[in-house]
Write a protein that binds this DNA or RNA. Structure first.
Lengths: 198, 198
DNA sequence: CTATAATTTCAGTAATTACTGAAAATTCAG
DNA sequence: CTGAATTTTCAGTAATTACTGAAATTATAG
């Protein structure tokens, strides 16, 4: 297995990027390799292509599995395990986001919630709680939104993203209709009073 | 400067989280401290509160400044520099995202674009380029979208997020209106043909 | 079962990253 | 200017994280 300069370059770049995102360089490179590979690869092929020790590859693959980012399969007449990345980039992105939520966002939210339960014992803690609440609310809202939007068809999502900030026009349109028709057309999720403001 | 257990806990948690996101523990803790603090703090106060050396705090603050996450101010009759975090969590989040885009997304996009310019020299590279293109398109779309949505008023953004996947209903509504009215109401950004699909 | 192929584990080591204290540089009141 | 206060730099060291090779474990063909 010898990488073309094109693939080589891609793999190295993702190694670097990985390390900026708390994923180690090796794991980044392994995934980049699987991502651009035309066919599933076994651990020895990966080790050879990237010049890592076999055991390093084993650990890297285990890590990637724990992120649910690889597919494992067997080839006929071959005992070795073959790994690949999903074909759909959106799916990869979604999995990554879900896993990060589970590992980082959820624990943070739960820490914040716990801290907000306690009665503040002084003015300082009152302020600390206020700040924590602001952060909690932002993270929670973003998470709920993400969770929700994730369920959309990729096509619908693409359509929405392409609209960008022009969605506002839809909102305005809706509000006008609502005013004219007597306010029965709302489709917003929450009964949260903040929703009505401004 | 002595931290209450509430603040202590928050600070430690963000130290850990930081290190999972490629930000070092010290920097995470310093920012968490500034974030919950009622008033701006100088470097000595930070060093004392977190038990770091003065020089470590200096480096941490420099790092935070490079992310544009701190505000620097002076107090009357005091030569020392006082640091604080912006009051608006949304603003913090936005700055963080912008800065990460500049440092990680933009270079990646440019690497991908460059790689896609080259004529593939064989079937393998053709496939590599295909995969790179998929990734490029996803990242670019997400970036453009983010860039666009970032300009909205926080209130509008909140409203949109609270709607979650219900925005689809607006889309459907729009499509119906379009059909009835003869297709003049489109507000989608791109002339991209993909936009029409499904 | 047994033998061999394949994978995982893990102790030791290498490489990287974080942190400190001392010294240098900068800032500013007098 | 001068000199004290403040901040920054940086070489050295500590701590952490990554990686390897050898040994142990697991899986499977015969």
């Amino acid at each position: 297995m010898n990488l073309t300069p094109l693939a080589q370059n891609f793999v190295l770049h993702f190694g670097e990027m990985g390390s900026r995102w708390g994923i180690n360089r090796t794991v980044g490179q392994i995934y980049a390799l699987l991502y651009v590979s035309q066919r599933p690869l076994n651990a020895d092929e990966i080790a050879e292509a990237l010049n890592f020790s076999r055991s390093n590859v084993s650990m890297g693959l285990k890590e990637l599995e724990s992120w649910r980012l690889t597919k494992l399969q067997h080839l006929p007449n071959d005992r070795r395990e073959y790994f690949s990345a999903p074909e759909d980039v959106w799916a990869i992105f979604r999995t990554l986001a879900e896993e990060r939520r589970k590992r980082e966002i959820d624990p943070t939210l739960s820490m914040l919630r716990d801290a907000l339960m306690a009665a503040p014992s002084n003015a300082e803690d009152l302020h600390v709680q206020q700040r924590m609440r602001e952060m909690h609310d932002l993270i929670e809202m973003a998470t709920l939104w993400f969770n929700d939007v994730q369920k959309l068809e990729p096509e619908t999502l693409k359509q929405l993203m392409k609209m960008g900030s022009h969605v506002t026009k839809l909102l305005e349109m809706k509000d006008k209709l609502k005013t004219v028709a007597g306010g029965r057309a709302s489709s917003a999720r929450a009964a949260n009073p903040e929703n009505q403001s401004t």
